[in-house]
Amino acid sequence: MEIRVERAGDVELVEPHGRIDSASAKEFGDHLTAAINSGSLRLVVDLKHILYISSAGFRSLLIARKLVDQTGGTLILCGLSAEVKRTFELGAFTELFTICATRDEALAKAR
């Protein structure tokens, strides 16, 4: 997994590439936690280039989601492939996250 980061105004756009697997989930979670703790209160995570998310990856997303709630920030997900969307549904996560279809929609919502 590789993580690319862009700033769009005061929104941090996080774009992981590859697989959020059992081994790389920690790095992904640490990145999100560090971004939130360093003051990036508006996070958009674009999952367009993600092939799959393991349960460990969902754990990282849940931790980040709780942290932005505590700090008054925003976490918006976008770009879910049909397969990734299916795992969100299997894990009953769709209700717990704000999910947009496209990056533009997510950025508009984050601002």
Binding site: R19, D21, S22, A23, L51, Y52, S54, S55, A56, E83, T87
Partner: peptide, 12 residues
């Protein structure tokens, strides 16, 4: 996708 995810979960 399903095969990769399941192998990751079980072997992990």
């Amino acid at each position: 996708h399903d095969l990769s995810l399941v192998l990751d979960e079980i072997v992990g």
